[in-house]
Amino acid sequence: MKTLKLYWLAFSTALQAKFEYRVDFFLGVLTSCMLQLSALVSLWVIFTQTPNLNGWSKEEIILLFGMVAGALGLSELFFNHIWMVPFYIVMGELDRLLTYPVNSLYFLLITRPELHSFGNLVTGLVLSYWALYHLNAPLLYYFLLPLFLFSGCLLYTAGLVLFASLSFRFIAPTSMHLMIPHNLLNATRYPVTIYPAAVQWILLILVPFGSFHYLPASWLFGKEPGLGLALAVLAASLVFFWESGWFWRWGLKQYESTGS
């Protein structure tokens, strides 16, 4: 309980510090909405050329778009600090963190919330609920949606931790390699069945970003798996998030700090 309080204090303090840059906050929210909308424009262009994508209608794909935006927003709000790890390794700035009597990964994750995340989160929720309404989804799905988004947030963050841990081995002052999981997440805005089998395997099994929305949506639209498999994703995301800690500890063993 004491540890949880400490985490909360660290998170809320970091959040207050971020709110100091108010103009940046409003601009960040606005522009993250713009980024989501620009992706929707691409979808619009695609649907001017085809009535559906492998049997998925525009509204069904908008649900996937919304869920990805929501999960991304949650991850940016609570766990965004992971993006700074490559820079901290180069500068030797992890030293102080490692002396704290807390879990270094979890403490790091929550201490740099990004306020533009609200833009992604709000856009994601609006798109998701809009799609559910237009698809006449059962009420149960409305209640399960936040759980699926949380699950997506954990999966995506775990993927980022995995790639960030590689920074301990391949030292460079850039977080460009974290764009790989980011791009993979964005790939799942479209139904994974449009990709070749190997890519489907990556997106559903190896780095299972596609599972938290594709499987529940498939269940909703009566395309493939049942509710059981959709709910199993929730448990799987917790396991995947916990497992990412192994990679973090592997990385930390190689951390050498700097001499200056």
Binding site: Y21, D24, L27, G28, L30, T31, S32, M34, H116
Partner: peptide, 8 residues
């Protein structure tokens, strides 16, 4: 900050 500008 540069993020909002970059994202826009």
């Amino acid at each position: 900050s540069g993020y909002g500008i970059f994202a826009a």
